[in-house]
């Protein structure tokens, strides 16, 4: 039994384009400890997002095993995956990906709609999450009424509202200016330090990667 919360064992993965195999990951092995903050750093095409997709169960490896929180992801059905994902992982994307017709609070509440929580309980969770990211006063604002940094913080609140153990962040500062990016990285560091969240940060920005507790460099599908 491993103590790793994320365990990738000899992962190989290829894409096929017009029947031509394009290998992306080659025999990659990676173990991430609970409550760690790991940055996956690498240039475009190095396979960073593919690793993230495999961890999230969006895709299945061509070879090897992906185990997250003691669960072998490739053994789960689509239905099980959806439920497991909702309870285990939180996602933060480069482009925030908020629903434009919903307010900040409603965006954060979305994952909670899949639970049996009452309206009052959901409201309490939403308020807590938004306060945690410093947006307690922006609950009724629509995404178009928020700055990029605020939108990303709402996205982070949405990612943590289900209290997942793991946060997967794909270039979360890629669309932000320096100051907003710094705020987001500080927030992620806080979540890691204070809430004990395991964070996997995918980035090609060395400065952002340096905010993590460890850095894994990827090049041409291998850890270097």
């Amino acid at each position: 039994m491993t103590s790793s919360i994320i365990d990738l064992q000899k992962i190989s993965h290829s894409y096929f384009r017009d029947d031509v195999e394009i290998p992306v990951l080659k025999q990659l092995t990676l173990a991430i400890e609970p409550a760690s903050f790991v940055a996956l750093l690498g240039p475009s095409g190095s396979g960073k997002t593919t690793v993230l997709n495999l961890m999230a169960g969006f895709d299945r490896p061509t070879r090897g095993r992906v185990s997250i929180n003691q669960t072998t992801v490739s053994h789960l059905s689509d239905r099980q995956l959806a439920k497991w994902r909702a309870n285990t992982l939180g996602f933060i994307f480069q482009f925030y990906n908020l629903i434009p017709v919903l307010t900040a609070a409603e965006n954060v509440e979305l994952p909670l709609l899949l639970t049996s929580l009452s309206r009052v309980q959901r409201a309490k969770h939403v308020t807590t999450a938004l306060r945690l990211v410093g947006l307690g006063d922006r609950m009724t604002h629509y995404p178009r009424q928020l700055s990029g940094g605020q939108e990303q913080r709402v996205a982070i609140a949405r990612a943590i509202v289900m209290d997942p153990k793991i946060l997967l962040a794909d270039e979360p500062t890629g669309n932000l200016d320096g100051e907003a990016a710094d705020e987001i990285m500080t927030l992620l560091q806080r979540l890691n330090a204070e809430q004990g969240k395991t964070i996997v940060l995918v980035t090609h920005d060395l400065e952002a990667a340096q905010r993590a507790t460890s850095i894994c460099k990827l090049q041409k599908g291998r850890l270097v």
Binding site: A56, A82, F91, F93, N97, I99, P111, L114, R158
Partner: peptide, 16 residues
């Protein structure tokens, strides 16, 4: 399409 992708990552499934 993109939005539905987001919802799928949040755990939304076919019935939703």
């Amino acid at each position: 399409r993109h939005e539905y992708g987001i919802l799928k990552t949040l755990g939304f499934r076919a019935p939703h």
